[in-house]
Each structure stands twice: as structure tokens, then as C-alpha cells.
């Protein structure tokens, strides 16, 4: 089957420092592709290349090609000169959830409604419908139904992260990117997010960066190990278990020493 993400020979430098070296990567239309690696191995940068977010933070130079299936077959994201869509539309179609739950400093409802209103220009009736669906999708509706107008800052960490997920889903993304979405959460909140991710993976292609080998093997349908800006191994079948992943990461560490 055609992949949802296809990265070919992709290199990238930020502020003239080479971060990614000739990366080849692909992700299937369904399931969770997990990226693991030590910190500084380029996982997050690779993830942020998929919605061209790196270039908003630092001066970016790229080589090679990235294509995504945003609903009408594979289309070019990089090289960046003649992408068929404007960058903001690419970003809209690629939902992203960050490591720390970054809610917008607005009310719970506005967090979802504002992007819909500004980016999708939907009428308010439809926004309300979608607000409800998305909050239900992440299991937040019962908890927040009565206080949609209160500030999103009043939510707990896990709730905030689910709100971020709902916000991404509301924009009807073709692909979900998750950058260590449970890193700043406690065990229970993390478990609840993981449940929702498994559920979502049946509808969306998901690329997830993880720090935690156990989580990686709980969620992964494909596992990619990164090191020093390169991809060193990709498992599609016979995924390694948690201790094997831990060993793999530490082995590379000792090799370096």
C-alpha cells in the first residue's frame, strides 16, 4: 500500500549546523510509527520537518525530498520552492501535539474554535458541532462540558494534552505528529492518552517520538531507531521488546564512549 509519509535522502541543517543526514523514512496509512533515539539524535527535527516547522525557529537549509499524503495522493513538502499548497495549509493538514501541553491562553472552547474560525473559516454552528465531536473523541467532553468558557489553563496536565490532541483533530488532519506527548504527564494521564492514540491510529497515520522504550513497544506498529541524525534501524515486523530497545540505545552510547 502507498505510504502516508515518504522521506527520501533528506538532509537538513539549522543555522548551518547539519542535523539530519540523508534520512530515509516512511510511515504507513494506519498505525503508529514510533521514532526512538537518544536526545539530540534528530527525532524531533525529523518530526518538525514533516510540517516545515523548523524553518519558523531557525535558518533552515534542506536537501532531498519529503512527500506526504494529505488526502490526494503523495505531494511534495520539500524541496520547498514549489510546493502545491501554501505552508500554512500544510501545517493545518498535519496535526501536531507537543511535548509540553501548550494550550493557547484562551478558554477551553476557544482553543478549538479559534483555529477553526481563522484557518478553516467555518460557520459557528459547525464549529460547535465539531468542538463536541473532538472533545468526545479524546474523552474530554464529560469533564469540560460545564466549563467550556473557563480558561484552558485551569485544566490538569493530562487534560491539557488531550485538549491539544482534540485541537489538532478538529482541523481534520491527514496525519498526526506527536512529539513525546506523555513526557510531562503522570502515569495515569499518560495511559489515558495512549489509549486514545491506539484508537486514533485506526483512522489516522501517526508518527510519534518517544523517549520511553516501554511506551514505544506498547504503541509501535513500526519502530525506527535514530542516532546522530541518521536512521540506524527500522523494524516493521518482529518488533523488539522494551529491554531490547533499551539495550540498543545504551549500546550505541557505549560505542561512542
Amino acid at each position: 500500500m502507498q505510504p502516508a509519509v515518504l522521506v527520501e535522502n533528506f538532509s537538513l541543517s539549522l543555522n548551518r549546523v547539519r542535523i539530519l543526514h540523508a534520512v530515509n523514512f516512511s510511515a504507513a496509512q494506519q498505525g503508529i510509527s514510533v521514532l526512538v533515539g537518544r536526545s539530540g539524535s534528530g527525532k524531533t527535527t525529523l518530526l518538525r520537518s514533516l510540517n516545515r516547522l523548523n524553518e519558523t525557529i531557525a535558518q533552515t537549509e534542506t536537501q532531498g525530498r519529503i512527500r506526504l499524503d494529505l488526502g490526494v495522493g503523495l505531494e511534495d513538502i520539500y524541496p520547498g520552492e514549489q510546493t502545491p499548497r501554501p505552508v500554512s495549509e500544510i501545517r493545518r493538514l498535519v496535526g501536531m501535539v507537543f511535548q509540553s501541553p501548550n494550550v493557547l491562553p484562551l478558554s477551553i472552547a476557544e482553543n478549538i474554535a479559534l483555529p477553526l474560525r481563522l484557518v478553516r473559516k467555518l460557520p459557528s454552528r459547525e464549529i460547535n458541532e465539531r468542538l463536541q465531536t473532538c472533545l468526545k473523541q479524546v474523552g474530554l467532553w464529560e469533564e469540560t462540558e460545564h466549563r467550556l468558557e473557563s480558561s484552558a489553563e485551569t485544566l490538569s496536565g493530562g487534560q491539557k494534552q488531550r485538549l491539544c490532541l482534540a485541537r489538532a483533530l478538529a482541523l481534520e488532519p491527514a496525519l498526526l505528529l506527536l512529539d513525546e506527548p506523555t513526557a510531562s504527564l503522570d502515569v495515569h494521564a499518560a495511559a489515558s492518552i495512549e489509549e486514545h492514540l491506539k484508537e486514533l491510529a485506526t483512522h489516522y497515520p501517526i508518527v510519534l517520538v518517544s523517549h520511553n522504550p516501554r511506551q514505544a513497544c506498547r504503541l509501535a506498529t513500526q519502530l525506527t531507531v535514530m542516532e546522530d541524525g541518521k536512521i540506524v534501524e527500522t523494524f516493521r515486523e518482529h518488533l523488539p521488546n522494551a529491554s531490547e530497545i533499551t539495550e540498543m540505545l545504551s549500546e550505541r552510547m557505549t560505542e561512542l564512549v
Binding site: T56, I57, S88, L93, N102, L118, L171
Partner: peptide, 12 residues
């Protein structure tokens, strides 16, 4: 601080 997530939503 708002930018990475805001831009990722497709906002300018």
C-alpha cells in the same frame, strides 16, 4: 512561546 504550536495549527 505561542509560535511553534500556533504555527503548527496553520495560524499565521
Amino acid at each position: 512561546r505561542l509560535c511553534p504550536q500556533g504555527l503548527a495549527l496553520g495560524l499565521s
